[in-house]
């Protein structure tokens, strides 16, 4: 299988680069820091468990993981396309799908390994010395976080497939990050504030608007965590705001951007 060849080569190539290490170290450090601080934030009488830690950790990860994912992914294909070494690979019995799959597995794998490793240690920090381990929910959370990372490396790689220069990929990738992560929150907050000022709502967005506001991957990540993993949190509202629908949308994010970008990439003239 040629995608494994691409993946193996990409891992050994990417993992040795300093920029990759810095990005992955950022994720690891944020995760560990969250695990270290969380027990200090819990009031004495409440129980500290890895399950309740999950919602707390989400707050630390919803900004950083997208940024790292996009930065890991945006150059993956386009830098080889721009230099011309992509043509050398595609001259061999290697397909465009192989290249895409290899790069995706490699970059997503690096981020996922970092997330799994650092969440394991963070979990230990939460449990030791006074907390308890809820193994199954926590494993679920680890998988969910790894998938959240995969959504964002996928978006980064999708960006890489859509443009023909690395520079444009960076601009597009950072733009997507800003729109979905930074601007999105600001707009949603401004909207709910404005509606409250106008006396239309009492601080909470109406359900349909909440649904739209919640389409962003980070918010879906939070809703799924609250619905499935954290026993202290609950998801309420209309049926379309449930954690199950969020899970479906989460999967759409996982395959959608990459799938659409691939459809375009597979038919494009590379030279």
């Amino acid at each position: 299988m040629s995608w494994q060849l691409i993946a193996r080569q990409d891992v050994s190539d990417t993992a040795t680069q300093r920029s990759t290490r810095v990005l992955l170290a950022l994720v690891a450090m944020a995760t560990l820091l969250a695990g270290y601080i969380y027990p200090l934030t819990v009031p004495e009488e409440a129980a500290t468990t890895t399950a309740t830690f999950s919602t707390y950790a989400v707050g630390w990860l919803t900004t950083l993981v997208p940024l790292v994912g996009v930065l890991l992914g945006y150059g993956s294909v386009v830098s080889e396309r721009e230099s011309g070494s992509l043509l050398l690979s595609l001259s061999l019995p290697i397909s465009r799908e192989d290249v895409l799959l290899g790069k995706y597995v490699s970059r997503t794998g690096l981020l996922a390994a970092t997330i799994v490793g650092s969440l394991a240690i963070a979990g230990w920090l939460v449990v030791y010395p006074f907390g308890t381990l809820d193994l199954l929910p926590y494993l679920g959370f680890v998988v969910l976080t790894a998938l959240f990372g995969a959504i964002w490396t996928g978006i980064g790689i999708a960006v890489s497939l859509l443009v023909s220069t690395k520079r444009r990929a960076l601009v597009l990738g950072v733009t997507v990050f800003f729109l979905l992560v930074i601007v999105w929150d600001t707009v949603v907050q401004a909207l709910s504030l404005a509606l409250e000022e106008l006396g239309i709502t009492d601080g909470e967005l109406p359900d349909p608007l909440q649904f739209v506001a919640g389409l962003e991957p980070g918010r879906l990540f939070r809703r799924i965590t609250e619905g499935f993993i954290d026993p202290n949190a609950a998801v309420d509202g209309a049926w379309y705001l449930s954690e199950w629908i969020a899970l479906v949308l989460f999967v759409v994010w996982l395959v959608g951007p990459l799938g659409l970008a691939y459809l375009r990439f597979s038919g494009v003239d590379l030279s």
Partner: peptide, 21 residues
């Protein structure tokens, strides 16, 4: 079936560059 077609072919393309590193 591009991959199958290239299975039996040796190629020296134009506009390539060698693989970095």
């Amino acid at each position: 079936d591009g991959v199958d077609a290239r299975e039996r072919v040796g190629v020296l393309p134009e506009g390539y560059s060698v693989i970095e590193r």
